[in-house]
């Protein structure tokens, strides 16, 4: 595979890889490092890359494994630590609403960070990336049943947290 072919296949999914890495390592710079390491490894596979049937699933799998290796290798951030710039919710006009939105975003993000990794990864790929159960199963090396179970448990946990927060006033 030459460089142009590599770019055509891999470039369109780099943001998706980045979002998954970010969900796992919870740090923007580290997430970008993960994606870069994955890209380098892919490029260095050379012509073997053409043998891969489902490139996106392969890349997502590599990204998840690379991110988990990074976490095991001593890089640890407190799961609720915020190290990235929060995205702007552009349809909100007033500064007070922006501030309220940022607070809400941080709370939801913390809830997700507190989920077990397998629940969090499945939720990321389904609810944020919009992948099918089959695509998620291939990417995360799970059975369809495991994907559904992990997703059910993740959503159940977040629902309970949301209702709890709502009763206290989110």
């Amino acid at each position: 595979m030459d460089w142009m072919e590599f770019r055509e296949q891999i470039w369109p999914i780099k943001d998706r890889l980045y979002r998954l890495a970010l969900r796992l390592v919870n740090d923007r710079a580290e997430a970008e490092d993960v994606v870069q390491e994955v890209m380098v490894k892919l490029w260095q596979q050379g012509k073997d890359l053409q043998l891969i049937k489902n490139m996106e699933a392969w890349c997502l799998r590599m990204t998840r494994n690379q991110a988990l290796d990074k976490l095991k290798g001593g890089y640890r951030k407190r799961r609720t630590e915020i190290t990235e710039t929060l995205p702007e919710f552009t349809t909100i006009d007033t500064p007070e609403q922006q501030l309220e939105w940022k607070d809400t975003y941080q709370q939801i993000r913390s809830m997700m960070q507190n989920l077990p990794e397998n629940h969090r990864s499945v939720m990321q790929l389904r609810d944020i990336e919009g992948l099918s159960y089959q695509e998620i199963a291939e990417a995360l090396e799970m059975t369809m049943s495991q994907v559904k179970t992990n997703l059910f448990r993740a959503r159940k946990t977040l629902r309970e947290e949301l209702l709890k927060q709502s009763s206290y006033g989110l």
């Binding site: 943001d15 970010l22 975003y105 709370q107 944020i128 949301l162 927060q165």
Partner: peptide, 16 residues
């Protein structure tokens, strides 16, 4: 109570 969750999903999906 569920609005923040779905708004979060939308915004998180736009990060690049």
């Amino acid at each position: 109570a569920y609005r923040p969750l779905f708004q979060f999903f939308k915004i998180a999906g736009e990060q690049k």
